[in-house]
Design a protein around this nucleic acid. Sequence first.
DNA 1: TCAAAAGTGTTAGATTTACACCCATGA
DNA 2: TCATGGGTGTAAATCTAACACTTTTGA
Lengths: 229, 229
Amino acid sequence: MICRDMTFYKEYEKVWVAVDVIIFGFDDGKLKILIGRRQMDPGRGEWSLYGGFVGNNESVDEAAERVLYSLTGLRRLYMRQVGAFGAVDRDPGERVVSIAYYALINVADYDEQLRLEHGLEWVDVKHIPTLYSDHNDMTQQALKKMRQKIKTEPISFRLLPPLFTLTQLQKLYEAVQGEEVDKRNFRKRVKEMDFIEKTELIDKSHSKRGAALYRFNRRTYNEDPNFKL
Amino acid sequence: MICRDMTFYKEYEKVWVAVDVIIFGFDDGKLKILIGRRQMDPGRGEWSLYGGFVGNNESVDEAAERVLYSLTGLRRLYMRQVGAFGAVDRDPGERVVSIAYYALINVADYDEQLRLEHGLEWVDVKHIPTLYSDHNDMTQQALKKMRQKIKTEPISFRLLPPLFTLTQLQKLYEAVQGEEVDKRNFRKRVKEMDFIEKTELIDKSHSKRGAALYRFNRRTYNEDPNFKL
DNA sequence: TCAAAAGTGTTAGATTTACACCCATGA
DNA sequence: TCATGGGTGTAAATCTAACACTTTTGA
């Protein structure tokens, strides 16, 4: 930074820096986010994203990871920054600049117990209620980024169990993009990606006939990282 | 550390929030950024992006605009956020979280006087020196975002004079993407975008024959916003 | 036996890429 | 007259999109 001397003016002050996390999950054929009722004033009781302040000895990214872990008990989740939200009055109390992140989790990995303890709910991204402060804005931006990303990078798998059917993968893709796609064309594209491996296993829980289970092979992907859905 | 009273132990503290701006310009057939020598400690004398702190009564976006204006004297420039940079030690002095932005300017609009006063230099993005702190990282991320954006939104014009030749537009596109494209195919695509209007004017400064000057018509674009390069 | 989900190919149309020569002019 | 940058079209290849029926099996 090339900037002027600050010694004389109180023009600038330190501010609180927080992180807020948009947690995406795929459940019941729908893309959902995890939200809860805000437990502090101002805005107590309003629907809200989960967040926390950035500590003295952690980077902003680390703060986001800590918050995500405290909420899910899960490590190594896929997480990306959405951006900084810094309107002067975005927080009715003090000045807080918040950095939003989005994370992807496999809903089945998430302990229901923990969800209840935190008083969290999964809500369909198509029906998100009014959230505290600028959290709706954050969510929309997160969605936009995630939609973009999921087309060119193999992150869909972060929202699915390790073994999944092609129908599941397609439904996920449709839920994320908000539009249906042709089954045959979709499968044709999947077939070209060698890192989406067919296993010998069959899932019979969703159909009588049973569907082949697939898995994402990261090794194979790293050798030829061509993802395009 | 063990038995310390938690009410006195400040786990969280306010931090400085700054903005840093990557200013892109197109000059001499090259995509360049504007950098200067840092004028304060720590890091005095190192190459650096231009930045400033976020004031009490302005949003982070407004701070970025203020900083950009103070540097260029220009308003209404195209600017987008790159993201927040929050490593604990990114600033060797105090803890500072910085929000990076990139901006596009038409180099001809930029007062040389002002450039000299601030001690700034235009440097080719292909040969960026080592910058202060994490500024190289910011710059690379900005470039990546800008490259992506310029393919789908009509922001190229922000880097060109109001009237430009197709060769200029092509060279700009090539400089941004870092690869050459076919002239006939490029022009074919331009011809399909009605909002890139041919004028009756001829630019003779770069060739004997002279090249038709074009202009971006925002009205027409708004009616049919299909941009694809 | 039938309902429900799984699985499978082809073709037309659209898009993309590769490619080479003439034009106008000032020096 | 010639060197320089401006300007133009076609054909092959690739990619995309549309589309319908058969299979399996548990209830």
